[in-house]
Design a protein around this nucleic acid. Sequence first.
DNA 1: GTGTTGACGCCTA
DNA 2: ATAGGCGCCAACA
Length: 110
Amino acid sequence: MTKGSKPQAPSEFTKRVLQLVSRIPVGQVATYGDLAEKAGRPGAARAVGRLMATGSRRGLPYHRVVAASGRLGGYGGSEALKAGLLAAEGLTVRRGRILDFGRCRWRGQS
DNA sequence: GTGTTGACGCCTA
DNA sequence: ATAGGCGCCAACA
């Protein structure tokens, strides 16, 4: 089969971000900017957020991806749900903010 | 090819 | 602390 048609070939950046998200261990969280940087596009936090919103891949712990400064960000319209999921992971969320954020922030391989 | 949007990030007032 | 603006990149109309 030739490549006659190109069915939404995912960019390296997209695959990279999704891969990183799937690598986030339980009890830890990563920020959009962090994922973008690890994916090879520092500053592309928006692109990362868009990937979550559109959800090219399912089954990934998108709820472990939060905004910077310890803010949750959003979750399809129910950030409370995101907070609940994070709390269930062992984190502590207070008024839409992750307390031990600097403690549970996933650093990949530090 | 252009314009707009989006689960962001950081700065300044 | 709150508000507003600019910049970044990728997908969609």
